[in-house]
Each structure stands twice: as C-alpha cells, then as structure tokens.
Nucleic acid binder design. Sequence first.
DNA 1: ACCTGAACACCGTTCAAGT
DNA 2: ACCTGAACACCGTTCAAGT
Lengths: 207, 207
Amino acid sequence: MPKTLNKPYHHGNLKNELIDAALDILKKKGLVGLSLRELAINLGVSHGAPYRHFKNKTELLEAIAVIGHQNLIQVGNKARQKNPADPKQQLFELGLNYIQYVSRNPEIANLMFGGVLSLENCGPELKQASNDSIGGLFAIIESGKQSGLFVNKDTQSLALTALATVHGLSMLIIGGILKDQVSSDAKLQALGKSVYEIMLNGLLIKR
Amino acid sequence: MPKTLNKPYHHGNLKNELIDAALDILKKKGLVGLSLRELAINLGVSHGAPYRHFKNKTELLEAIAVIGHQNLIQVGNKARQKNPADPKQQLFELGLNYIQYVSRNPEIANLMFGGVLSLENCGPELKQASNDSIGGLFAIIESGKQSGLFVNKDTQSLALTALATVHGLSMLIIGGILKDQVSSDAKLQALGKSVYEIMLNGLLIKR
DNA sequence: ACCTGAACACCGTTCAAGT
DNA sequence: ACCTGAACACCGTTCAAGT
C-alpha cells in the first residue's frame, strides 16, 4: 500500500487517496474504527488537511456511498447487456450479483442503507446515484411486461417487489441473521436461486 | 419526562432509565448524537455511573436492539393469534405490521439491521432475540403449507423469501430510497398491499 | 491553492476513592 | 453495591498562520 515512498509529498490527489484509504479502513475496522485523523496521519498529512477536500466526515462517507451506488448501477447494466431480450435472465443475474456485491462489501452496503447518511440532506451526487440505482431494474421489468413475460401490474410495484426481495435478502445476510443458511458461497448461490424462483412463481399454489 | 424531581436520587433503576433515555435521544438525534456522557448528565449521575450497568456503549445499544427484536416477535405473535387458521391473513398482517414498526422506529431498526452491532460477538440476549424474531414467520408458512395454501417447497426458502420481501421493503423505506412512494400513510399501506399480492402470486404470468 | 499546528469542545473508558 | 471525579487517549472541527 502507498504510504511514504521516496519523499514526503505536499500535494497531489489527496482527495482520492483519502477515499481509498477510508475504504481500506472501513473493511478492516468498520465504520466505528474510521477517523479522519487516522486517515490523515496514515497518508502523511496533518489532521486538518482532509478538510480542504471534504466539508466534514459525512461528506467523505457520502463519497464512498456514491461509489457503492455506482457499482450497483453497473451490476444492473451488465445484467441487461449480457442477456439481451431475456428479461427473466436479466432479473436473475441482477439479483444474484446484487446479493453478491452486498455480501462482499457489507461495510459499503451498510453505509448506503444503514441509516448513517440521510438522503434528505446529502450532496447532489449521492441523491443522483441513489436514484439511478433503481433504474436498471425498472427497465428489466418494463421490457418483461411488454414481451408478455411478467404480470400486467404497475411497473413500480413489480420493480419494488423484486428489489425488496433482493435487497432484503442481501441485508439479512450481511446482518448475520442468515449466517447458518449462507455459510458457504455455494449455499448462498442456492438460496438466491431458490428465492428467485419463489419470487417469480409466488407463494400461493396455482388454481 | 423524569429529570430531577424532588431530590437528587442516588440509586434506583438507573439501568432502565438509561435505556429509556437512550431511546429518547436516539429518536431525537440519531445514533451519532447519542453519548453515554450526555445520558448520564441528563439523568443526574456522573459520566462514570453507566459503566456500573453496561460494560460499554455497545452493550447499551444491544439492550435496545433486544427490545426491537422482542417488539417484532410480538408483531408476529399478534398476527397469528388474531387470525387463527388463516395463514394468508396472518402473513399479510405480519408483513404490514413489520413494515409499520420499522417505518415508525427507523433508528431502532437501523440499530438491529444496520451493521452497528455484530451478532457474532454480542451478548446471549441479543443472539436469542434475533433468532426468535424469525420464528413466527416460519410457523405461518408451515401451517399454510399443511393446509395446501402455499407452494410445497422447503419452508426455509419460502419463509426467507417472504421475510426478505417485507424486510427489504421496510429497509428501503427508512433508507429514504422510496420517499416518493410512501409520502403518506395511505400510500405506504397501498404499496404494502400491492407488494404482498405480487409476492403471493409471483412475477410471472401463469400458463 | 493547499497544508500545518494549536486550540476548543467534545467523546469512551478506566480506576482509585468515596458513601 | 453503587457512584464520583480525575485522568488518559482519543475524536471532529475551526482557524490563524505558513508555503
């Protein structure tokens, strides 16, 4: 990791290095263990330096949450591009990769969804990113409806149901509530597939 | 609210008062605004006093999370008792009331599910409570399967699908992601009902 | 424009000492 | 058994001053 190389640097892209270092500590020590002062010291600057790039600690955390949302947006985009004209498979891949991303980045996910940040009084970047992250799912549902695959109910309710299922499963997993059910990667995959099929076909017996 | 009544008290049930006061501040100022020191001062004791009743701040937060889980367990119990032999209605009430409880107690929910506490290294009470909170749902699914109402898949997958949907919707709501969709209590109710029916019947068109 | 270093007002936690 | 008060090691944030 880049600590001090040849010489102490007095400028550069401290902003991005702060974000990277923050991500690092977040994964290692969790949100509680993350302090701006430690970040600054680790990067060889004074503890006041971060405030030239972030108004406060929250603004740094928001920057990380934005990255998380952008990653989820990518998950949606990839799922669509990889399976053109197959909304069912698109939905499946979106779901499984969503769960996988959250499982592998629990600290970022908790930052995005754990109530630490407020979408009301946050910067415009986070507002934008968090809005956009639902977009891919809506598109999939919409195309699936048009091709007569999905039920003809309002797109929003359908999309939210799918999102809720996937999101809920993800959050339950990183919350540790399902630790028995997802002790291995294979089990997680199996559970995801199982839930996905129940979501598609419903809980009720057909009549 | 109980601050200083007639005389300064030097003993009593400080432990419970700390929990109550913490809940109060949690709702008013959020988790970030909660400090043991302020709690102690508000209750008229020294800042060291809380440490006679809680090993540390985390242990206080765990006590609150336990209360939250117990409340969710009650939600499940009520839903079952109120609609005997009607698993469909039981599931509906459990779901809507779960969403309602989380919506109305977002700080507690974020404490339970937001990654602040670890279910791995927490006290036995929280472990117990968090395990039990899924129980009611399992019972509903099981009885619904036996009466030929729900699909004959493994109970765990069915229960987790239902839980994930309800939990996910709840967390999305308090996360502010659905603020447009749930701006009023009526809208929340409508969305809940809509999602519930999609969950029951599935996304796919029957063939 | 960017960074430093002192300063302020907080924290959590520990521990001898008091009652 | 329960609480106090000093003490320690941290925080976030601000701001004059440096380069």
